[in-house]
Design a protein around this nucleic acid. Structure first.
Lengths: 155, 155
DNA sequence: TAGAACCTTGGAGTGCACTCCAAGCAAGCA
DNA sequence: TGCTTGCTTGGAGTGCACTCCAAGGTTCTA
């Protein structure tokens, strides 16, 4: 809970969020002021969901045009791609919001972020093991069904 | 929809459901008349969920005591174990109900059952690929966080 | 034979993750 | 300048998969 003094090291802001793999962006940095409908097209999320993410604190600090419309950056796109990955693991949104909060709080939260991701990692491995298990059962049954019939389209 | 004449072949009922792997049952066949709370203990599902499965057609034909209380068989336990595996894949309950319906309809539905399971199999493989992808991202970030700190409990 | 613990039902409620709505302002084009 | 399309908000609604409730009957142990 106690916030330490900011470290004097001149680390660039990007380091804090932990740069993602070098994904290509629709537009180069500097021209990256995407409207919400562009982000919809790039991410597959709906505009509703994007606004909702912002409301619950999962998508912080989206820039605005002078009239108040959202303008997303490449950095925002990277964040959304990461969130999407977490979402696919079945991670509850509340945990993602917690992670987003930790990112906002700065470098003091590196340890907790690491723990959170490691816990997620364990969940992912468990899910993969479950799926592998299920795959075996499915294959068993599929083979059974395939074997009981005269192989419709063979040859 | 049309129901064919019952096949004269004296196939045991078990064949139709496609026997699962030889899982050990709490009690041998013949003494397998489990109460709902026993099934809760074995499966980890709640009694609410078991009754709900029955109501929606996912858990058909559970035997009853002479006073109307449910008595589950080893066969029912096998079915629940399979349903649980499907559930873990994220398969919608409506699809599982469809599969249960096909089982009820008999051997004429083998082909459709196979298709349904093959489609599920593809979903499982896709999910596993997504998870593998996510795992790479998680590892990348975890390594980043681990590298920025003085390795707390090393040595 | 009493009392506790368990089981029954239909229907209503819950939590999650969106999803939609109405009313109004903004942006781009003929 | 008008018209169409897009964007804004808070709040209400949706769909899924459970989850719980009340009121009453059943089973088991002492």
């Amino acid at each position: 809970m106690t916030v330490m003094e900011t470290t004097p090291a001149p680390a660039p802001a990007k380091v804090d969020v932990c740069a993602a793999a070098p994904e290509s962006h629709p537009r180069p940095n500097g021209q990256d002021r995407y409207t919400i409908s562009e982000v919809v097209a790039f991410t597959g999320l709906t505009a509703h969901t994007l606004r909702w993410y912002e409301r619950i604190g999962l998508m912080p600090d989206v820039d605005r045009s002078h009239t108040g419309q959202r303008r997303y950056s490449n950095h925002d796109l990277d964040w959304l791609a990461f969130v999407n990955k977490l979402r696919l693991t079945g991670m509850p949104v509340a945990h993602m919001v917690r992670y987003a909060e930790l990112v906002r709080l700065g470098e003091e939260t590196f340890a907790e972020r690491q723990e959170l991701l490691e816990s997620t990692r364990r969940d992912v491995l468990n899910r993969m093991a479950e799926l592998q298990d299920t795959l075996a059962v499915l294959d068993h049954k599929i083979n059974f069904y395939a074997g009981t019939r005269p192989a419709p389209e063979r040859d």
